[in-house]
Amino acid sequence: MKLFGYNLDYENSYQKWSFLISHKLFKREGERYIEMEGEAVEVDDEVALHFEKIFSRYLKIAYVDILNADRADLKVSVYYLDEPAIMVHKVVWRHLDNKVTYIVYDVSSGEPPQHLEEPECRELLSVFGIPIF
């Protein structure tokens, strides 16, 4: 299975939005979930489309907004794995007084990502023994 994780420092005056996305991937090893390091990759259309599939519904941005933005520092990591894993993206909404939300999904479940507030995410991740960040 091939996955992408995104770190994005985004500022767009058209939307008057500013946020910071960071991510961590936790793969299952035995009974535990441990953090995995990815490899840096260049942005291409596959990466862009994957970003939109995960984020567009919640962030209301698409790849063209990243191109359009006043500032969009996008760093992408690729992961190759066969084990179950939990992908967690943290969003700090700077234009909303630094409100924090999380986009979380179980990569092997096929279920769509969930967009969670901090307490809900903490509770969800605690089931897997994953610390919130």
């Binding site: 259309d45 862009a48 489309l49 939109e52 599939k53 567009s56 519904r57 209301k60 698409a62 790849y63 063209v64």
Partner: peptide, 17 residues
């Protein structure tokens, strides 16, 4: 669902503003 790049994924998809 988002399956293709815009504008080849109409419509409307979650990207639309």
């Amino acid at each position: 669902d988002i399956l293709n790049a815009c504008p080849f994924n109409c419509g409307l998809c979650a990207r639309h503003r």
